[in-house]
Protein backbone atom coordinates (compact mmCIF):
# COMPACT_ATOMS: atom_id res chain seq x y z
CA UNK A 1 0.00 0.00 0.00
CA UNK A 2 1.40 3.43 -0.96
CA UNK A 3 1.57 6.37 1.41
CA UNK A 4 -1.29 7.97 -0.51
CA UNK A 5 -3.52 4.90 -0.17
CA UNK A 6 -2.81 4.65 3.54
CA UNK A 7 -3.47 8.38 3.90
CA UNK A 8 -6.81 7.97 2.11
CA UNK A 9 -7.84 5.20 4.50
CA UNK A 10 -6.73 7.21 7.52
CA UNK A 11 -8.76 10.14 6.21
CA UNK A 12 -11.82 7.89 5.90
CA UNK A 13 -11.38 6.68 9.49
CA UNK A 14 -10.98 10.23 10.81
CA UNK A 15 -14.05 11.43 8.88
CA UNK A 16 -16.02 8.53 10.29
CA UNK A 17 -14.88 9.15 13.86
CA UNK A 18 -15.44 12.91 13.72
CA UNK A 19 -18.64 12.44 11.67
CA UNK A 20 -17.39 15.15 9.31
CA UNK A 21 -17.00 14.46 5.58
CA UNK A 22 -15.23 17.79 5.04
CA UNK A 23 -12.06 16.70 6.84
CA UNK A 24 -9.08 16.72 4.49
CA UNK A 25 -5.67 15.42 5.61
CA UNK A 26 -2.16 15.72 4.15
CA UNK A 27 1.06 14.21 5.40
CA UNK A 28 1.82 17.53 7.12
CA UNK A 29 -1.53 17.94 8.94
CA UNK A 30 -1.28 18.20 12.73
CA UNK A 31 -4.16 17.09 14.96
CA UNK A 32 -4.86 20.44 16.53
CA UNK A 33 -5.44 21.97 13.09
CA UNK A 34 -8.46 19.68 12.58
CA UNK A 35 -11.79 20.71 14.14
CA UNK A 36 -12.82 18.22 16.80
CA UNK A 37 -9.53 16.27 16.92
CA UNK A 38 -8.99 16.71 20.66
CA UNK A 39 -7.33 14.30 23.07
CA UNK A 40 -10.39 12.05 23.45
CA UNK A 41 -11.02 12.03 19.70
CA UNK A 42 -7.34 11.12 19.34
CA UNK A 43 -7.85 7.98 21.43
CA UNK A 44 -10.94 7.14 19.37
CA UNK A 45 -9.04 7.65 16.11
CA UNK A 46 -6.02 5.62 17.15
CA UNK A 47 -8.23 2.77 18.33
CA UNK A 48 -10.32 2.93 15.14
CA UNK A 49 -7.15 2.83 13.03
CA UNK A 50 -6.06 -0.30 14.91
CA UNK A 51 -9.50 -1.77 14.26
CA UNK A 52 -9.61 -0.75 10.59
CA UNK A 53 -6.06 -1.83 9.62
CA UNK A 54 -6.05 -4.90 11.87
CA UNK A 55 -2.86 -3.77 13.61
CA UNK A 56 -1.83 -3.01 17.18
CA UNK A 57 0.33 -0.06 18.09
CA UNK A 58 3.05 -0.49 20.64
CA UNK A 59 2.84 1.63 23.75
CA UNK A 60 6.12 3.31 22.90
CA UNK A 61 5.06 4.15 19.32
CA UNK A 62 2.19 6.45 20.10
CA UNK A 63 3.89 9.23 22.00
CA UNK A 64 6.32 10.20 19.26
CA UNK A 65 3.78 11.18 16.60
CA UNK A 66 4.03 14.79 15.36
CA UNK A 67 1.76 14.79 12.30
CA UNK A 68 -0.36 12.60 10.02
CA UNK A 69 2.74 11.62 8.03
CA UNK A 70 4.27 10.07 11.16
CA UNK A 71 1.03 8.17 11.72
CA UNK A 72 0.95 6.89 8.12
CA UNK A 73 4.56 5.66 8.40
CA UNK A 74 3.79 4.02 11.76
CA UNK A 75 0.80 2.19 10.24
CA UNK A 76 2.95 0.89 7.39
CA UNK A 77 5.69 -0.21 9.76
CA UNK A 78 3.10 -2.04 11.91
CA UNK A 79 1.58 -4.07 9.08
Amino acid sequence: MTDQETLNRVTAVVRDQLDDDEVSLTMDTVAKAVDGWDSLAHVRIMVAIEESFGIEFRTSDISGLDNVGDLVRLIEASR
Partner: peptide, 14 residues
Protein backbone atom coordinates in the same frame (compact mmCIF):
# COMPACT_ATOMS: atom_id res chain seq x y z
CA UNK B 1 -2.27 -4.46 29.25
CA UNK B 2 -1.36 -2.30 26.25
CA UNK B 3 -4.85 -0.77 25.99
CA UNK B 4 -4.63 0.11 29.69
CA UNK B 5 -1.19 1.68 29.38
CA UNK B 6 -1.96 3.54 26.17
CA UNK B 7 -5.52 4.73 26.73
CA UNK B 8 -6.52 3.54 30.23
CA UNK B 9 -9.18 1.33 28.67
CA UNK B 10 -10.69 -0.96 31.35
CA UNK B 11 -10.67 -3.97 29.02
CA UNK B 12 -9.86 -4.86 25.41
CA UNK B 13 -11.77 -2.70 22.98
CA UNK B 14 -13.01 -5.67 20.96
Amino acid sequence: AAAWNLYKLPFALE
